[in-house]
Amino acid sequence: MSRLPRTTANDRKSYTQMTQWSGYLGLILQGALVTIELTLMGSVLALIMAFLAGMGRVSRFFVVRAIATAYIEFFRGTSIFVQLFWAYFVLPFAGLSLTPLQAGVLALGLNVGAYAAEVVRGAILSVGREQYEACTALNLGRWQGMRHVILPQALLVMLPTFGNNAIELLKATSVVSLISLADLTFQAQVVRSQTGSTLMPFLSVLIIYFALALIISWGVRTLERRMARGLDGVRI
């Protein structure tokens, strides 16, 4: 007789625990959304910066080359972490207040953009000399040649490394949790501090990050195959 109430109490307890876990899982999934959002926005900024700086590095004009080189060296030389803290804590003193999300996108985009700019430069330089000579022979302007002849070939060379850069960016987004943006890593810490459980939040977050990285590399491979279509027998 005495066993019955105890089981029901246990049932109730395990039920509330279950709803709690699903609530915590919801928190982590919310964090995943923020991480995805950051990764996408950061990637767009990084892509823009990569092309600007990468093509700046191969410009005819010394000033453009110097600015592009300074940008690349600066952002590759200091760590993403320092840049993020600088954007979030120091820029307000210069009168430019950024929300954590803005600071995160800015730092991630500029940092990864600097790495990707070198990829753009390398890919442009990897296109053979005869292609440039062909552009001249066809009387294409510098920009026309770049747009229609060089970049379409260089893009295919860049793509795999861009995929790696995107995964690096995804991993770097975890740093924004330290400026109180509620991404995956931040939510894992919230769950840890509320439940005292450590294995569940961190392991699930690690698995989600890994799944996202797998999705990125799969997406880049698919894109690569699609772009390489019809290029069989061409140099690449």
């Binding site: 991993k171 740093v175 995956l184 890593t185 894992a188 392991l203 690690l206």
Partner: peptide, 21 residues
């Protein structure tokens, strides 16, 4: 592959918070 695909920060948390348990 798994270690390379996940952020160092979370791995540090993992080592720092899970291993003591």
């Amino acid at each position: 592959e798994f270690i390379r695909g996940t952020p160092l920060l979370v791995q540090l948390y993992f080592i720092f918070y899970v291993l003591p348990d």
